[in-house]
Design a protein around this nucleic acid. Structure first.
Lengths: 170, 170
DNA sequence: AGTTTACGTCAGCCTTGTTGACACTCCAAG
DNA sequence: CTTGGAGTGTCAACAAGGCTGACGTAAACT
């Protein structure tokens, strides 16, 4: 299953980017980059009573206003108990509003309040600033490649969620 | 600070990839992709008494054999108490060996044992398989862009660690 | 001799994930 | 109309893995 293949020979030059060493570097790049990716919002959240889980919830509610709890559960990939704990505090603090469904009254539709939108902006701005700088430095072609690879490494269900959000967005 | 800028106008076409909507999609791609990235090793670890933190420690010890605790601390970006908890179990279970430094006897140099190397392989194989598939599907240019963007979003110190490992590697 | 560095460890706390169980509301199908 | 199942909320208990603060030891440096 594992191949301690010599990195230089064996393959016809064009597959050199699939070397074990290249893949290892790819893993490490993901690790370090994800740390950078979450660093700024985490710093802001640290001062408040919230954590990364709250950021994620706020982000996706802001992204898809009126989404149901179940929908959010699928996107976030956590248990309803985990999500509920986060959601409860956000609702109690007046950042998120939960409305009983009009058609199906079992469902709760989630919206950000003004206050919630403000926090979402603050957090996303911090995160996007870093991403914007990285994108600018790397250039459009690198960004396209970045997206292509990330999409290719998602699980199918995640890819579906991602695509759905992407299409609803613009 | 925040700009609800109309996505279509204002800018001269070549900066369209820096739209807020594009950045938002980038964030979400990172989120979903990272989930995929950690999914396979997490599944394996779940059956054992170890978690993601153990995987990280094993990975970087395998990558830089003989590294000191302090060095590892910098790479991982956690407190020594956190790392120690993980390291202690790995040493107790015979996956990692800790040797007192020859020159500086305060330092401990960390190595994987045979058993440790075996687990490292198992975990990394799972992770690399997904990455390999993604890289293959996306192609060399996309992979280059992927790396460029990830490197650009690291904090400087992380980028230094990353580069150092990269150079030692091949 | 005194200070600093590298490491280990104890105690306690927080966030965020998990499972399992139970209740309630409500839609839909028989 | 009853009943099954879906969507939701919540309680309890637990685990992983972060964190801070404090203390101890050995070795190195000055």
């Amino acid at each position: 299953m594992t191949n301690g293949r010599p990195p230089s020979t064996v393959r016809g030059d064009s597959l050199l980017f699939l070397t074990d060493e290249q893949l290892r570097q790819g893993s490490e790049a993901m690790f370090f980059a994800y740390r950078g990716f979450t660093a700024d919002p985490d710093r802001i959240l640290g001062d408040m009573a919230y954590g990364r889980a709250h950021h994620r919830a706020i982000h996706f509610i802001g992204r898809a206003p009126g989404t149901t709890v179940n929908n959010l559960l699928n996107i976030l990939g956590v248990t309803k108990q985990s999500l509920n704990r986060v959601l409860r505090t956000l609702i109690a603090d007046g950042l998120v509003q939960s409305k009983v469904g009009r058609n199906d009254k079992r469902e709760r539709h989630l919206h950000l309040t003004q206050e919630g939108r403000a926090l979402e902006q603050k957090l996303s701005d911090a995160q996007r600033a870093r991403l914007r700088a990285a994108f600018r430095d790397a250039g459009p072609e690198a960004v396209a490649g970045f997206r292509t690879v990330l999409e290719a490494m998602m699980d199918p269900e995640m890819h579906a969620s991602y695509t759905k959000l992407k299409e609803s967005g613009a």
